[in-house]
Each structure stands twice: as structure tokens, then as C-alpha cells.
Amino acid sequence: MAEFLSLSEAVSRHLRDGDTVAFEGFTHLIPYAAAHEAIRLGRKDLTLVRMTPDVIYDQIIGMGLARKLIFSYAGNPGVGLLRRFRDAVENAWPRSIELEEHSHAAMANAYEAGAAGLPFAVFRGYRGAELARVNKNIRSVMCPFTGEQMAAVPAIRPDVTFIHAQRANEQGDVLIEGILGVQKEAALAARQTVVTVEEVVHDFDGVHPNACILPRWAISAIAVVPGGSHPSYAAGYYGRDNAYYLAWDDIAADRRRFTAWMKQHVLEASAADFAERTKIREIG
């Protein structure tokens, strides 16, 4: 049953060293505030899961807190490569990182299998693709009816999933609007789910009956963090801070500049700073 907690309490209670954790979001609603809290708490040896690890995973990896990454696209979309991720893969700085690399179709199916309580996902994929050679978790099964060879990947079952959403009601149900990504599946695939929200409203009266709502009993904890997905965005609240994503390319290009930036903007900052950031036009 969803408990309303402060962000630091929610993260410290539900995320442990060595956990498999998904901070999911597909361009939209990326849970930056929750991930920054995990960095401040120094949670380490994490196996990070996400379809599109972008700047936030670049930050966690650059801080040396990740042991392994399960992913399908590691880039700064429209800007370029992730420089801290590259430094870890190419130079083992600040530590080496193990990769389990998939395609989007595989990850989406694997989360769905996790939510559905299945041990693996089956789909038509990876034909001729070389990832199957380097990832032992990409296998195949034969359709028992047609004989067709299908791709199979293990279900994703995170210890904990963090997502950001627009609103909770006072009972602790959570409403997600706009681009939903794979967040519903990631939330239901996990043993525990923590949600940060822009605000709490009295009830969801008037919300469309087909809206995406996670009921309170499927959620472990809720933390109210206005601006909590900045520099990603929350439809209806604030837009994507594209300038931040563009600026990140330079910040992350240099180890010392990155470290100084993290100290100032993450380690010495707090969840309360996010609300202001959705109004600020320049960073670092």
C-alpha cells in the first residue's frame, strides 16, 4: 500500500546496495530527483536497468555507483553519445561496468513479461543481429504450433523501480499522462515501486475512465517532488529542458568538470531544488 514519504526516506528505505534498479522514463517523466537522491545516499554496486539510459545514468555511472547496465540505447538523443558511459566502457573510469545489451523490442517485451509474471519474453526479433552473439541472455525458442524460431529473453524483475508521474490522489493512486513509455510495465515488474509526483490532488474525479492509473496497492511509496523529472519533462507542468541536454555534452566531456558539476548540482543540492530548475534557463 502506498505510503507518502519524503524522497530521502523513500529512497533510503527501498533501495539497497547491490540492487537491480530501474529508473524508467522514455524522454518524458524521467525520475531525476529520485536518482539524485540515490547518488547522494551513495547507493552502490547497482545493476541499472533502462531502455534509454540517458543523462541520469551517465551521472550514476560517472559517480562509480553502477556495476552493470541492462539497456537498449545509451545516448543523449539528438545530441550525441554519453561521455561518462563511454569512459566507463572504454577506459573503466571510475570503474569497469558490465553490459547486458538488448534492442528496444526485447526490453519492452522483457518488462511486460516481468509484469505478467512470466519467466521470459518471446517475440520476433534479433534476426541477423549480432547482439545475439555477445549477449548470452538472447536465446531462441521454437513455436510449438508453427515451428518458427522466435527470440527469447529473460523477464526483467527489478528489486525496485522508480518512476515519476504527474499526480497522486490523497489515497495514493497515481495518474500518468502523455508518453507512457514502459513505466507501467516497469512498475508492475518490480518487487517494490517508488513514485515521485508533481502534486497531490484530492481525487481523480473527471479523469477519463481509460486513463493510466496505478492503484495505491500496487505502489510501495510516493514522494511529492515538484519538478522531479527536470531536465526531462512532465506534460501539463513543464517542458523538456533541451538546453540542459545540449550543455551536458560539454560538462560530461571532462572528468574534473563532471565531478565538480555533480558536487555542486547533486551532492550539495536537495530534492527541494527541482521546482526552481524548471524555471531556470541555464545550467553549469
Binding site: F26, T27, H28, M51, P77, G78, V79, H104, A105, A108, N109, Y111, E112, F123, G178, I179, L180, G181, V182, K184, E185, Y233, A235, G239, R240, N242, Y245
Partner: peptide
């Protein structure tokens, strides 16, 4: 869009589905 998930894409779409539905 700068990214494949910019708000502009959702606002102007006929419909927006989840990523698993998209691929499946």
C-alpha cells in the same frame, strides 16, 4: 523533436500508446 519522446510529438499525435504496444 530533439528526442524521440518530445512533448510536441504526443500533443499532435492521433494517439499515444505504450512502448511495448508500439513494438508488439
Amino acid at each position: 523533436p530533439l528526442s524521440i519522446g518530445d512533448g510536441e510529438l504526443c500533443r499532435t499525435a492521433v494517439t499515444t500508446v505504450s512502448v511495448p504496444e508500439m513494438f508488439r
